[in-house]
Design a protein around this nucleic acid. Structure first.
Lengths: 145, 145
DNA sequence: TTCCGGTCGTTGCTTGTGCAATGAACGCAG
DNA sequence: CTGCGTTCATTGCACAAGCAACGACCGGAA
């Protein structure tokens, strides 16, 4: 093997980077609204499209079924989302932001945008290529799903 | 706020990408040696420099103290790592790979290299810029530590 | 020597997560 | 209408992780 340098290992670098980037913003919504990352993803998705099932979240937001389900339950308990039975299909649950939840997102979304902008700013003029690379890796890379 | 698209949010993309990339390889050492990601990081670091304290791992490998400590304990129980008291400083613990652990790394390191190569191959000729961007973000970006 | 602030590693406690199993509800075939 | 395989969401269980507290240990000062 002969000396393996973890700090030069791309999967490791990506993990550290992603964690650091994620923490930067999650600290914010965590301290302000007590949200976990999983919960943030759920409300973020709900802000875009209401009346969504757990299943849709689970596949569109890259989370385990159970993870999405529990995040939704916590959000319901906190009063940010409502869970109602789908009248057309008794198996499905319709998740939606409550007015409180919507107000929260109106506060958080601009912050998210600002944070992202700051991030891109750090990248300088290499930003476009970086975004491109990330997107392309996300699509074909290593074919997980 | 007006429609926030999580899938276009860079922190989210990075998280998904990193997770997918990490899973691709962690599945391997998980099924073969029953290692968690934290444990992999510990042995990876140990393969590079023996006789290392928990503290050094905790700061060099981006893990909580307790996370490093428990990972080391599990590795010791599994027979991959030895923990001995540092004779010069009774507070410190010297971690080192056992022969078994070393054999494991001789198996895993080439696989890690191959996996990374495949990853870079997916990036094509944009790989250098991508690596550069990741490294630069890791250094200054958002200043976590 | 004794005391004291600081460091190192471990451990309780609580919480989140993955995985498998469960139960309710659907659609379709007979 | 009655089964029957499938889909959806939830839950029990085991385990990892974050945080704070704790005890052991160090080095230097009085």
């Amino acid at each position: 093997m002969n000396s393996f340098d973890l700090s030069e290992f791309l999967p490791y670098q990506l993990a550290v980077l992603s964690q650091r980037v994620s923490d930067g913003f999650s600290t914010l919504y965590r301290s302000k609204y007590g949200l976990t990352v999983a919960e943030w993803r759920v409300v973020a998705h709900l802000s875009q499209s209401d009346k969504v099932s757990v299943r849709e979240i689970h596949e569109r937001v890259a989370m385990e079924k159970s993870k999405a389900s529990r995040a939704a339950s916590r959000l319901e308990a906190a009063g940010y989302v409502s869970k109602t039975a789908n009248p057309n299909d008794g198996r499905l649950v319709s998740l939606a932001l409550t007015p409180t939840g919507r107000r929260m997102m109106e506060d958080l979304v601009p912050m998210a945008r600002a944070y992202e902008a700051e991030l891109l700013n750090n990248l300088g003029d290499t930003a476009p290529q970086f975004l491109q690379a990330v997107a392309s890796l996300l699509h074909d890379a290593m074919e997980a799903d």
